[in-house]
């Protein structure tokens, strides 16, 4: 079930949710839920997703869902899973859908703890690269140079967009040596679905980081979501990778389309200077050198069996 054509007709994330037109996050959740199916419990932190799918009395999921707090996605999902195990429902998938702020910033402690304990959950970060729910404030995964409402434009060095580069959350998760870490982009459906399939099938902590363009926050057209997701990969800005049982694979060698092609579609980058664009180009180059070296170092190798008893 790794192609679009094989996906079930049935939706478990339903119409009538109130996401903005063209929302990448809503697409991610809809597709992941198609693959996970009915035997699933969903956790949502405070996020765009919560507001557009779980504003009382309406709810967009066909399966049970839980919401408690913002920074608790990984731990709440883990708590649910442990309880389900006690109730004899170990076969139920527990998935947490969290945004980048809830993952890379405020949720990092609980995420790291759950990963280290190898809690049996699937954690999906839909990365729209800022705190979109609260109105486009910068997060740890906001890219360098991007305008946000807390990195506004002005004449000083504090007015050039975000001054730091994107936090590499998947690499942090790799450092926890969990069974599965993968990145995915809406622009590459086959790759994306294959990874959801794998993540569903595995036991233990699984982390999926999906780039989910936000037309509103990125100041882009509402029909550009998929194009942006594709270009992010083809420019080399967003790397498709998979870290599975200790082996790192780079899934797609990009065309290295000039980053300008990607940046120009987004109002959040409209102000970038030539120097800033050059910095992004250099960052892409360095990142690929590093990731290739990592993939080489973490390539296939003879397996040492490790017993995990729970």
């Amino acid at each position: 079930m790794t192609t679009v054509k094989d996906l079930p007709r049935e939706d478990y994330f339903l119409s009538g949710h109130t996401a903005c037109p063209g929302c990448g996050g809503a697409m991610v959740v809809r597709e992941v839920m198609k693959v996970l199916g009915p035997n699933t419990v969903v956790y949502m932190p405070a996020s765009c997703l919560l507001i557009f799918s779980d504003m009382y009395p309406y709810n967009a999921f066909k399966v049970p869902s839980l919401q408690i707090l913002f920074e608790t996605s990984a731990i709440a999902a883990a708590g649910v899973k442990r309880a389900l195990k006690r109730l004899g429902k170990d076969d139920t998938t527990v998935v947490a859908f969290a945004g980048d702020g809830g993952t890379a910033d405020i949720g990092m402690q609980a995420l790291s703890g759950a990963a280290e304990r190898n809690e049996d959950i699937l954690y999906v970060c839909y990365d729209n690269e800022a705190y979109m729910n609260t109105g486009i404030q910068r997060s740890g995964t906001t890219p360098f140079g991007a305008w946000t409402t807390t990195t506004p434009l002005g004449s000083t060095s504090e007015g050039q967009g975000k001054n730091e580069f994107k936090k590499d959350v998947p690499r942090i998760l790799m450092a926890h040596d969990v069974p599965y870490v993968a990145t995915a982009s809406l622009g590459f459906p086959a790759d994306f679905l294959k990874k959801v399939d794998k993540a569903k099938a595995k036991k233990g902590f699984r982390y999926l980081h999906v780039l989910a363009p936000c037309p509103v926050g990125w100041r882009a057209e509402s029909d550009s979501t998929v194009d942006l997701a594709k270009l992010a990969v083809e420019t080399g800005i967003f790397t498709l990778l998979e870290y599975e049982d200790g082996v790192l694979t780079l899934n797609r060698e990009p065309r290295f389309t000039p980053v300008r092609e990607y940046l120009k579609l987004q109002g959040r980058f409209k102000h970038l200077s030539e120097g800033q664009i050059a910095s992004i180009e250099r960052w892409v180059k360095d990142k690929w050198e590093r990731d290739r070296a990592l993939a080489k170092a973490l390539g296939p190798k003879p397996k040492v069996p490790v017993a995990i008893v729970r």
Binding site: H17, T18, P57
Partner: peptide, 15 residues
């Protein structure tokens, strides 16, 4: 209302 109730909310009017 409740689980799976979002289809109560017709969002076509946004268009």
């Amino acid at each position: 209302v409740g689980v799976g109730s979002s289809p109560s909310n017709l969002t076509g009017g946004w268009r």
